[in-house]
Simulated scan of single mutants.
Amino acid sequence: MHAFEGRPSDGPRPDPEPVGRDHVRLRAGLGIVGDRFFNNPAHHNAAVTVIAAESLDPWPVDPLVARRNIVLRGFDVDALARGTVFSLDTGDGPVRFEVHRPASPCAWMDVVVAPGAFKALRGKGGKRCTPLDDGVLRLGKAALAIVIT
């Protein structure tokens, strides 16, 4: 992850490039094992961020720069209402997530994505969620289902 601290006009610290993973391990109510917000009380309702890849399509960037944990293609993440429960299954069994609030973009998007991205991503920055199950998600195709409660 880039260290987005200070003012965007100063640019990010010269940290290593963001690292993609071929899989992540999730813990119910805690988040992604190894993530900086894992088991952080201030982030229990926002432990995992999900974004639609289409939100970033206007720019030729690696989705990792948006600093979202999960990138989905072909699903309107931003249309999910607070309290919605959905599941993702990449072959190791479904993992359910509860949607809590928007993952609003910040001014850093103008620096790491492109000028104007901060404004363009308003309302398209994804959602902050809580995992409801322990499980594993792998890179690649996933089955997504809205859970009716």
Results as ranks from 00 to 15, higher is better:
residue 23 H to A: 12
residue 24 V to L: 10
residue 26 L to T: 04
residue 26 L to A: 10
residue 26 L to G: 13
residue 26 L to F: 12
residue 26 L to V: 04
residue 28 A to L: 10
residue 28 A to N: 05
residue 29 G to H: 00
residue 29 G to T: 01
residue 29 G to F: 00
residue 29 G to E: 00
residue 30 L to E: 04
residue 30 L to N: 00
residue 30 L to H: 06
residue 30 L to M: 08
residue 31 G to A: 12
residue 31 G to V: 01
residue 31 G to T: 07
residue 32 I to M: 03
residue 32 I to G: 01
residue 33 V to F: 08
residue 34 G to Q: 11
residue 36 R to C: 02
residue 36 R to N: 00
residue 37 F to W: 01
residue 37 F to Y: 14
residue 37 F to D: 09
residue 37 F to I: 02
residue 38 F to E: 03
residue 38 F to N: 02
residue 39 N to I: 14
residue 39 N to A: 15
residue 39 N to Q: 14
residue 41 P to N: 00
residue 41 P to K: 00
residue 42 A to W: 11
residue 42 A to M: 06
residue 42 A to G: 08
residue 42 A to C: 08
residue 43 H to N: 04
residue 45 N to C: 11
residue 45 N to W: 11
residue 46 A to V: 05
residue 47 A to T: 09
residue 47 A to N: 06
residue 48 V to Q: 08
residue 48 V to N: 12
residue 48 V to R: 04
residue 49 T to E: 12
residue 50 V to P: 11
residue 50 V to K: 13
residue 51 I to W: 09
residue 51 I to S: 04
residue 52 A to W: 07
residue 52 A to H: 02
residue 53 A to S: 08
residue 53 A to G: 01
residue 53 A to Q: 10
residue 53 A to L: 14
residue 54 E to V: 15
residue 54 E to M: 14
residue 54 E to Y: 15
residue 55 S to W: 10
residue 56 L to N: 04
residue 57 D to Q: 14
residue 57 D to T: 07
residue 57 D to S: 14
residue 58 P to Q: 01
residue 58 P to Y: 07
residue 58 P to G: 04
residue 58 P to F: 05
residue 60 P to K: 09
residue 60 P to I: 02
residue 61 V to Q: 12
residue 61 V to R: 14
residue 61 V to H: 08
residue 62 D to I: 10
residue 63 P to G: 01
residue 63 P to C: 01
residue 63 P to H: 00
residue 63 P to R: 02
residue 64 L to C: 08
residue 66 A to N: 07
residue 66 A to L: 03
residue 67 R to A: 14
residue 69 N to E: 09
residue 70 I to L: 13
residue 71 V to L: 01
